[in-house]
Amino acid sequence: DGRFQLSAAGEAYEVTYLLVCTGSDTLIPPIKGLSEIDYWTSKEALEITTLPRSLVIIGGGVIGMEFASFFNSMGVQVHVVEMMPEVLGAMDKETSGMLRSEYQKRGVNFHLNAKVIEVGKESVTIEKEGKTARIEAEKVLVSVGRKANLSQVGLDKLNIELLRNGVKVDEHMQTSHPRVYACGDITGHSMLAHTAIRESEVAINHILGVEDRMNYDCVPGVVYTNPEVAGVGKTEEELKASGISYHVQKLPMAYSGRFVAENELVNGLCKLILDDDDRVIGCHMLGNPVSELIVLAGLAVQHGYTVEEFQKTVFPHPTVGEIFHETLFA
């Protein structure tokens, strides 16, 4: 009758639809000596009861920077090794650079454009610009990314189409099989918890016949460092690479009096990216609490607000959020 047969924990089930949400696993790079040491992934780093004297973090993405922030605040000597010219991957480079500069001041050592070529029990050897260097490290944290968990879930029996590093889905989260849906990290698209929640809503709605579509253009990304970094929509780098015209309006976060009062001796940035019709297509912020504020910009991106339309939003005073009002009139 076309129903699926599943078994789990000794129980057998027959179902009409499948929603596959098997998540992702930490990607472990083939680095010489890594398998011979007791290295950490994010899982082990969250289970510790004592602090190391020094830590090398392999990978300066979101997870790597969050752990660098935490261990630096605990007094650990932290080194971050990143292959790219800047930390935080595909996030806005201006705010990423500002965050890195702040943590450099706090004592974190960054090794950009560098590759780890060997790991030992108490050291990490890196290569940069053709030269090698040795970093002493009591512990090593591997944080170079995650990969979709496609194995051992039976997808091979259904001949589900894959795309890049995950399961291919359409705007309804439907796979190449009309009654199999996939959500979360397994799609390899946006490996964020809030993305997975929204994807599952879209999938269930489609199964129930309710009109709904997934829109990745307005999914916020947040880095929970101190200060926080957040972004939504297009980045300058993305638009430049695509040859798409845009312009920027930005202001330091200090234009908000409450931000100054609550964040002594630090500053931040609010940057709005606009298309040729003055519509908000991106926003990137540095400062606390931008994790709470970025959803406002996300709404502007989602609904295609122009600067004029967004300006009509009334922001209470004094708040940090009124930085949007100041930036819109900048």
Rank of each mutant, 00 (worst) to 15 (best):
Asn226Gly: 01
Val314Gly: 09
His247Met: 01
Arg146Trp: 02
Met91Lys: 03
Asn226Met: 04
Gly188Pro: 14
Leu269Cys: 10
Val142His: 11
Ser73Lys: 14
Ala12Leu: 13
Ser54Tyr: 09
Pro316Val: 00
Gly130Glu: 00
Cys21Arg: 11
Val144Phe: 01
Phe67Glu: 00
Val248Tyr: 07
Ala297Pro: 14
Ala90Pro: 15
Pro227Asn: 07
Tyr246Pro: 09
Ala182Val: 03
Ile58Cys: 05
Pro85Ala: 00
Gly10Trp: 12
Val119Tyr: 03
Asp277Trp: 02
Arg164Gly: 07
Asn205Cys: 12
Asp275Lys: 13
Val167Leu: 05
Asn149Tyr: 05
Ala203Ile: 03
Lys139Arg: 14
Ala114Gly: 07
Tyr13Lys: 10
Lys121Gln: 10
Ser176Phe: 07
Leu296Met: 11
Arg134Asp: 02
Ala297Arg: 15
Cys21Phe: 00
Glu138Val: 01
Ala203Met: 06
Asp212Glu: 09
Leu112Phe: 03
Ile273His: 04
Ala193Trp: 08
Val180Phe: 13
Lys128Gly: 01
Thr49Tyr: 01
Gly107Leu: 03
Asn205Ile: 00
Val153Ile: 15
Ile197Ser: 15
Val301Phe: 06
Ala12Lys: 14
Cys270Thr: 05
Asn226Phe: 02
Glu136Asp: 15
Lys250Ile: 00
Glu36Thr: 15
Asn205Asp: 15
Gly209Cys: 06
Ile197Trp: 13
Lys240Trp: 02
Gly243Asp: 06
Val15Ser: 14
Pro227Ser: 04
Ile197Val: 08
Val301Ser: 04
Met214His: 11
Phe4Ser: 07
Thr327Leu: 05
Asp275Gln: 09
Asn165Ser: 12
Asp212Arg: 13
Glu308Asn: 06
Ile48Ala: 04
Tyr246Ala: 05
Glu171Pro: 12
Val320Tyr: 12
Ile135Tyr: 03
Val180Pro: 15
Gly75Trp: 10
Val81Ser: 05
Glu211Leu: 06
Glu44Met: 09
His284Tyr: 11
Glu322Ile: 02
Gln311Met: 11
